[in-house]
Design a protein around this nucleic acid. Structure first.
Lengths: 164, 164
DNA sequence: CCAGACTTGTTATAGTATCACATGTTATAT
DNA sequence: ATATAACATGTGATACTATAACAAGTCTGG
């Protein structure tokens, strides 16, 4: 599997089935450790995000959940997604009104997203340097940062090649 | 007027009327220089954002525009706001579904917002260090950044004091 | 077993954003 | 000066996103 320094997995070819399964197993463990209730809807929601392997709107998720016999009203999806975000299994991408499975659930982090404006693929990095820069700026005027996320829009490597 | 290193004006007391007037004058100049059509609706929209001196939803802006005799349908506000954002006079804050006048319109920049979760005040900084960190990460896997913005949520200095 | 906290389902509704078309305005080139 | 193209505005309709509120079921600890 090709790698890149920042861990932007989305821009590399890899076996989705494998990473999906691993992520789910990891979530199961984490849920036990933290005494979280990763119920069927919630687990299935995470699975849906992982399988899609791209950002999904709440209504996309809802549709898939309904197909599996869960409720088909918006709160069903929003609640499950909220739970996943709250506990670090997923992130919300405001610019896209969408949600995506977290690619680094093993450690707390402030996500940095790179969104390709051409193919809409979203890559997530842990963005440690970015976080440090923000904390530094915040400190300079006494702001206490709770959570943050950064959304960058541009062209992914693949789409750049095609544009040439 | 108190200053702070990162230029987070929102967290300092200052004379709104003065900075509003200055920003509008600056916008007028810029519009002439760049041959932009800062029409009455657009100019008034910017003025509304500046006067409010906080992030406003599109429908808040629309309401004020309607009071001044402009159209009262959503596209009126969205189009004016889109123009302002497009040309750097304002920014969009996705997390709040809101818009705010740009505090550093004199130079192109990628905005970094600090949003107080208690009093909802939004401060904008130019975030140069942040931008550099992001560009660096992007380069490492060949992503070409077009635009970006960062939204950090937390507690502003004033609200921290009150919490103690 | 019971009480309380949490989870899910459902109805209804609120809030945000865009489409499409008609009309009017501005800039440019003949 | 006028025709034309590009841009701007007004308006109605509608699509998309998100939450409130309540009822019913489920898990947990005393």
């Amino acid at each position: 599997m090709p790698e890149n320094p920042a861990g932007a997995l989305a821009f590399c070819s890899h076996d989705h089935a494998v990473c999906t399964k691993a992520a789910l197993a990891h979530a199961d463990h984490l849920a036990v450790d933290k005494a979280l209730r990763l119920t069927p809807v919630r687990r299935r929601t995470l699975e849906i995000l992982l399988e899609a392997h791209q950002a999904l709107g709440a209504y996309d998720v809802l549709e898939r959940l309904a197909e599996d016999g869960f409720g088909n009203q918006p709160p069903v999806a929003y609640r499950a997604l909220e739970f996943l975000v709250e506990h670090g299994f997923a992130h919300r991408i405001r610019r896209l009104n969408a949600f995506t499975a977290c690619m680094h659930p093993d450690h707390a982090h402030k996500p940095v997203f790179f969104i390709c404006k051409s193919c809409a693929v979203v890559a997530e990095t842990a963005g440690t340097d970015v976080q440090i820069a923000v904390e530094k700026a915040a400190q300079s005027f006494g702001f206490q940062v709770d959570r943050m996320n950064l959304e960058a829009v541009g062209l992914c490597p693949t789409c750049q090649e095609q544009a040439e």
